[in-house]
Write a protein that binds this DNA or RNA. Structure first.
Lengths: 343, 343
DNA sequence: CACGCCAATTGTATCGTTATAAATTTGATG
DNA sequence: CATCAAATTTATAACGATACAATTGGCGTG
């Protein structure tokens, strides 16, 4: 047998006593239209009526049917977070989701996770959302300098906020972390510790912030006439085994770096593992300054220098900006750049 | 000015050329009803008609309007994952989401994240979903022996799958990890290493798996006549600082444990930090067997013994079971217990 | 007191889909 | 060729909300 269902065969849904505008209309003796407008706060409805309707609505626990609203108005009351489930960024998704749900709290917006899969380009889920108006706004990350998603969304004039900037001339909403400053500060810290040859592990070159990181790093080493090295063959996206192996190899060669600027927790642990395996003590025999995006490092020994990026706040800010964008605010006033703070 | 909008003032949505059943009906010369039923694969529609309609639908890229379907049928095509955004479980959410999106891939179901907030009981979002039929099925975790959410959902005969079991007599769908076996195996491993006094850090007592863990642990120590200790005052949910501090305190007292069974990555790191700070080498001076739910441990030094719980697979399985449950399969055949595997 | 005007409320149609019942066509049979 | 059943298609109504046009009632003014 199938599971038991309530309601007769003719009833499309089991919850037959769910209050609707009609319910309120019958109770108050008003027309459905009036009730709708009263709840919408239309000024043409008498104040007293508005209050009475609102009171009844609260009493019977009325909540508008989202499907009906969406069908009629075309607004979905949905924010879509396009997330790569294969993304190895450890807690990026979790933090962003935390922040987003906080920003969406108290609004009618729901958060829908739209995945994109490894073998398809990141524009695919965006196209899907646009074509079928699955959301009122989109949030995504891993932005590229000439990001195809940004171009498409700008063309369609569809609200979105991305994590990271582009090099496109049309302004758009974004929330970004000042990775140039991060890399600069981190490198400076290493140099101040007396490190003579800092190295940096960069993100994959297709991302905008790769150039930011590189620039900040190079600026710092040049200002101080220090030696430097950019780790090649691996990126921040590489699995930690690959990073560990690569650094281990490098340590066996002559003149290895004595400091590392690392843009993520996993990569920092991976480099620390290589150092440890080679008999070196991180923070002593080689300096490490890592970007910290969670409390993961707290119990890590030896403790290392970190610079904090608040991803939860980034998610919350993206949510707030997106709501404003949906409300019609111009994109060029919806751009946030978070400064790194030492921790 | 507000953002530019396409479509005339009377058009409720900007995308005026979006294909609907009506579009297909006009192209094929059939009635809207016929098109609907043809696409639904109704056997009363001639096979040739069905194929022709399907072909046209594919050509013009028709996709049904979810809002309209939902309004008419009462089915939302939404699966709701109730997630505590304040949960300190590091990558629990991410892994479950990964698995869920994989299971939902190719189905009409979307994944909606419904948060619950720190100051409200976990049943609140479930009530909200039920009352407004916001989803066709619910997934949640952190199950308790007499879980109020489970009771409510069973009463309402609403499809759900939870992560963890209950002690309720009515059968319900669940996916769980055999934590008793985990604790037993982990403790056995410690004893086999020659540890004489294993300790365990348990989850908060309100969760079902606390008892499972305790039981497995006690069974192993009793079978071997070993000493034991259950860490008190902290739980797996405690912040890592608290765990580190607590273990550090204990290490300063006489006769501390020489082995630890730890149900999560963060707690394992926290204990390792306390050992390190006390001049002990984890894995040498004190044994550690931890539950591994990510690749986070790979670069951790010294390497420690782990037992793997595949949370992504758990998420995928929950997705599959929930789809079956929605399809009408009886709950008692939708129960999965994952065995730990050594890694 | 007829008129117009404003405020407040109401009726009607519609969004896109589907369940139900009704209508049409087709084919077989006496 | 009339008749009936089966196969196939169609018309209608509804899900719940809202935009728009239309209506009602009250009241001041000439």
């Amino acid at each position: 047998m199938t599971s038991t269902q309530k309601g007769g065969p003719g009833a499309p849904r089991s919850n037959s006593d769910k209050p609707t505008l009609r319910t309120i209309a019958e109770i108050t003796g008003l027309a459905v239209t009036t009730v709708s407008r009263a709840l919408g706060g239309a000024p043409q409805i008498a104040l007293e009526t508005r209050q009475r309707v609102q009171r009844v609505a609260d009493e019977i626990g009325y909540l508008p049917d989202r499907a009906a609203q969406r069908l009629r108005t075309g607004r979905t009351n949905v924010i879509s977070l396009v997330l790569d489930p294969h993304e190895e960024i450890l807690n990026f998704g979790t933090s962003i989701i935390k922040g987003l749900t906080e920003a969406l709290r108290g609004t009618p917006y729901h958060l829908v996770i739209t995945p994109h899969f490894r073998n398809e380009p990141p524009i695919v889920p965006v196209r899907y959302i646009l074509r079928n108006r699955m959301a009122d706004g989109i949030i995504f990350s891993r932005t590229e300098p000439f990001d195809a998603r940004v171009k498409l969304l700008l063309e369609e004039d569809f609200p979105f906020v991305c994590h990271g900037r582009t090099e496109l001339s049309t302004p758009h909403a974004y929330v970004d972390f000042d990775n140039e400053r991060f890399a600069y500060d981190a490198t400076k810290t290493l140099i101040a510790q007396g490190r003579r040859k800092p190295a940096i592990l960069l993100p994959p070159p297709r991302f905008t912030f790769q150039e930011h990181m590189r620039y900040g790093f190079l600026k710092a080493v040049r200002e101080n006439g220090a030696g430097y090295e950019i780790l090649e063959g691996v990126t921040l996206d590489s699995p930690s085994e690959a990073i560990t192996a690569h650094v281990a190899e490098r340590l066996a060669e002559p003149d290895p770096p004595d400091g590392y600027v690392l843009g993520g927790e996993v990569s920092a642990l991976a480099v620390m593992a290589a150092l440890t395996d080679h008999g070196l003590v991180p923070g002593k025999d080689a300096g490490i300054v890592a970007k910290k995006t969670s409390n993961l490092f707290t119990p890590i020994r030896p403790q290392i220098d970190t610079i904090y990026e608040d991803l939860m706040e980034a998610g919350a800010e993206m949510g707030r900006l997106l709501l404003k964008r949906i409300g019609g605010t111009a994109p060029d006033s919806l751009q946030t750049l978070h400064r790194p703070e030492a921790r």
